[in-house]
Every structure is written in C-alpha cells, then in structure tokens.
C-alpha cells in the first residue's frame, strides 16, 4: 500500500491501465473457453436425438419382431394382428420399379451434363436437379396424382414414378461427380482410337465411374425407403397382398404411419417393429455406401 501511495500520478495511471488490460485479457480468455466449450456441447446435444431414436427404435421394435410378423399378411388385431409380408413385398416392388426408371435417366442425364457443362440445357439440368432434390416430397406426390392417378385409380406404378422422381436427382448427382473424376485423356484416347461416343461412354467412362453409380443408387434407395408422403396419393396402401401394378399396393412406411396413429396398442407395437426394419435398411445402405466411397478414395 505504501508503495502505491508513493507512486506519481503518471505511474498510477500506468498501473491502472495494466490492470484494465489484464482484466480485459481475462475476459477474452474466459469468453474463448466458454464459447469453444459450447460448440462441444452443441455437438453432444445434436447427437443425443440420434442415439435416443436408435435406442427406442431397436428396444421397442424388437419386442414385436417375430418370424410370423415378417411372413404373415394383414389380420385384424382381434386375430393377433397378423404381419407385414404384404408391405415388404410392396416396398420391394415399388423401389425396384423406381430404380429401373431412375437409374437410366439419372446416368444418361449425367453423361449429358458432364459433356455439356456450360450449355443452356446443361445449366438448366443442374438447376432442375437441385430443385427436384429440394422439392417437398408431398408436392411430388400431388404432382404424380394429377399426372397418373386423377380420373383413374391409385396404383403401384404411380407410386413407383413418385419414388423415381425423388431418386433421379441423387443418382444423377453422384454419377456426375464420379464421371467428372474420370481423366479427360481416357475419353480422348477412346475417341481418338475411333470408338463412337456411346461406346466411349458405356465401355470406358461408365466402368470407371461405376462405384459412384452404385453408391448413388444405394443412397437414393436409402432416401426413398422411408418416404411416406409421396405414396399417400399414389400407391395409397392396402391391407391385402398384391403384386398388380395397376392397383393400390402396401408399403412399409405407409403401414408404419397408419399403425403409429392407430389407437390400438398392438398396432403401435407393430409400428415400432416396422420402424426398426426401415431404420436398419437405411443404416446399412448409408454405412456401406460410405465404406465403398472411402475405399475408392484411398
């Protein structure tokens, strides 16, 4: 204290300034630590729902999961509730048909975009791809309804078209990315040897980009295997086993939706089992697509 008293006014000012700047430095350090810590907290918070959903889905889903549930078709709850074989078959048909439509269109359009990147059509296709992949799925459902269902009847084929519209942009974009990585010289060498454009595309470019096409297809299937909204007004859902393409067809996500909002507890339990099947499919497809892509990049 005595030394402080002995200081001249100028020295006192200086000591004060140092004190202030030290205090400021401390606040800066604290803010730094707090904010950086908060980003870590945010990461943990964001992962909680994932872990929580997975635990609930597997814990509750495995309770209703029996062999009968997988192999039987619909029965009223008074008769045990039956199974979801009709919905499994329906989903496989819908996704199979949708892939048959989306894969050729996606690959061919990707060839166009890669070979004509800066033409008006090329730019429009890119924009169209973005719009289609960002389109609310319910809007896709309405569109296909007005196109194929209005005036006729709900049908499996219209459901497949709706899913194909959602798959095409994914297949197109991943194929495009992979085709871009194929060295230009490969294409030029093939053309220079006298091979035609289609031969170059399908015998040289496509094999070089095939892993991209496959991961794209897997991601596209993962995306639509849980889609419900576009099927509401197209495939519509049904309780009977059917493979007819011109009639309504059952699917797993639609059945899950119906069973989840059903007041009956048996149906709710079955809804969780369906959720488990869908989530498992989506996880497997996503993880293996990631593994294939990783193996390629190494």
């Amino acid at each position: 204290m005595t030394t402080m008293m002995a200081q001249s006014p100028r020295e006192r000012m200086r000591a004060r300034r140092i004190q202030v700047s030290q205090a400021r430095e401390n606040t800066r350090r604290i803010v730094n630590a707090v904010m950086l810590g908060l980003t870590g907290v945010a990461t943990l918070l964001a992962l909680i729902p994932l872990v929580w959903i997975l635990i609930e889905v597997f814990a509750r889903g495995s309770q209703a999961m029996t062999l009968d549930f997988l192999t039987q078709t619909f029965k009223p709850t008074s008769m045990g509730g039956g199974g979801i074989w009709h919905a499994i078959v329906g989903t496989v048909i819908l996704i199979g048909l949708a892939s048959l439509m989306a894969v050729p269109i996606g690959i061919l359009a990707a060839f166009y975009v890669v070979q004509h990147p800066n033409t008006a059509i090329g730019l429009m296709v890119r924009f169209g791809t973005d719009v289609l992949s960002g389109l609310p799925s319910i809007v896709v459902g309405l569109f296909v309804y007005t196109l194929l269902v209005a005036g006729r009847s709900y049908s499996a084929i219209s459901g497949a078209v709706a899913l194909a519209i959602m798959m095409t942009p994914i297949v197109l974009r991943t194929t495009e990315e992979m085709l871009k990585l194929v060295p230009r010289s490969m294409r030029e060498a093939s053309l220079g040897l006298g091979a035609s454009e289609w031969k170059t595309s399908f015998s040289i470019m496509l094999p070089a980009a095939i892993t991209g096409v496959i991961t794209g297809l897997m991601l596209a299937i993962a995306r639509v295997s849980g889609e419900t909204a576009p099927l509401l007004f197209t495939a519509q859902g049904s309780n009977v086993f059917s493979t007819a393409l011109d009639r309504p067809i059952a699917s797993l996500p639609l059945t899950l939706f119906k069973y989840a909002v059903d007041p009956d507890v048996t149906r709710n339990a079955q809804a969780w089992a369906i959720a488990m099947i869908i989530v498992l499919t989506v996880l497997i497809l996503n993880i293996s697509a990631r593994l294939i892509a990783n193996r390629r990049s190494k």
Binding site: L50, G226, T228, L256, F257, A271, A275, V282, N286
Partner: peptide, 15 residues
C-alpha cells in the same frame, strides 16, 4: 450427424 438426416420422417413422427 448426417445419419440424423437419413432417418425417415415417419420414424421421427413415431418417435
């Protein structure tokens, strides 16, 4: 984190 985006909407609804 991206897997969160892969979980279907209808599963979120049931959850």
């Amino acid at each position: 984190v991206e897997l969160l985006a892969a979980i279907p909407s209808v599963v979120y609804g049931a959850w």
